Amino acid sequence: MADGAKNPARFLRDVGREMKRVTWPNRRELTKYTVVVIITIIFFVIFFAAVDSGLSELVRLLLD
């Protein structure tokens, strides 16, 4: 069994200690990462919309 399950207080102390070690992104990095994520999402939305539209049209042609 993991230590956290045996002693929740120790687990929470360890989590707090680890969170202090984390290197958090600065404002510039966070903005850059956010833009990359938004562009990636837009790309995938357009890609899957095109694939869906193409497959729908193909099924429509095959069934008619």
Rank of each mutant, 00 (worst) to 15 (best):
M1F: 01
M1D: 08
A2D: 07
D3F: 14
D3R: 14
G4V: 01
G4T: 05
A5V: 13
K6S: 05
K6V: 08
K6M: 13
K6L: 12
N7R: 02
N7A: 02
N7E: 04
N7W: 01
N7V: 10
P8C: 01
P8K: 03
P8L: 07
R10A: 10
R10S: 05
R10D: 11
R10F: 06
R10Y: 05
L12F: 15
L12E: 12
D14N: 06
D14I: 10
D14H: 05
V15Q: 01
V15H: 00
V15W: 03
R17G: 07
R17Q: 11
E18K: 14
E18V: 06
E18L: 09
E18P: 03
M19C: 08
M19D: 00
M19R: 10
R21Y: 03
V22M: 04
V22C: 00
V22A: 03
T23H: 11
T23D: 14
W24R: 08
W24I: 11
W24M: 14
W24E: 13
W24C: 11
P25F: 02
P25G: 00
N26V: 04
N26G: 05
N26K: 03
R27E: 15
E29A: 02
E29I: 05
L30P: 00
T31K: 12
T31V: 14
T31N: 11
K32G: 02
K32H: 10
K32Y: 11
Y33H: 07
Y33M: 15
Y33A: 15
Y33D: 04
Y33T: 09
Y33E: 15
T34F: 07
T34V: 10
T34K: 08
T34R: 01
V35K: 02
V36N: 08
V36A: 10
V36Q: 12
V36K: 14
V36D: 09
V37G: 01
V37I: 14
V37L: 13
I38W: 03
I39Y: 11
T40Y: 10
T40M: 15
T40W: 10
I41W: 09
I41L: 08
I41P: 03
I42F: 03
I42G: 01
F43P: 01
F43T: 05
V45W: 01
V45P: 00
V45Q: 08
I46E: 02
I46A: 07
I46S: 07
F47S: 07
F47E: 03
F47G: 04
F48P: 00
F48G: 00
F48E: 02
F48C: 01
A49I: 07
V51Y: 01
V51M: 05
D52A: 14
D52Q: 08
S53K: 11
S53D: 11
S53E: 10
G54K: 01
L55V: 12
L55D: 03
S56V: 03
S56K: 04
S56D: 09
S56A: 07
E57S: 13
E57H: 06
L58D: 09
V59E: 13
V59R: 09
V59G: 04
R60I: 06
R60C: 06
L61Q: 10
L61K: 06
L62P: 01
L62Q: 12
L63R: 12
L63K: 12
D64I: 15
D64M: 13
D64Q: 14
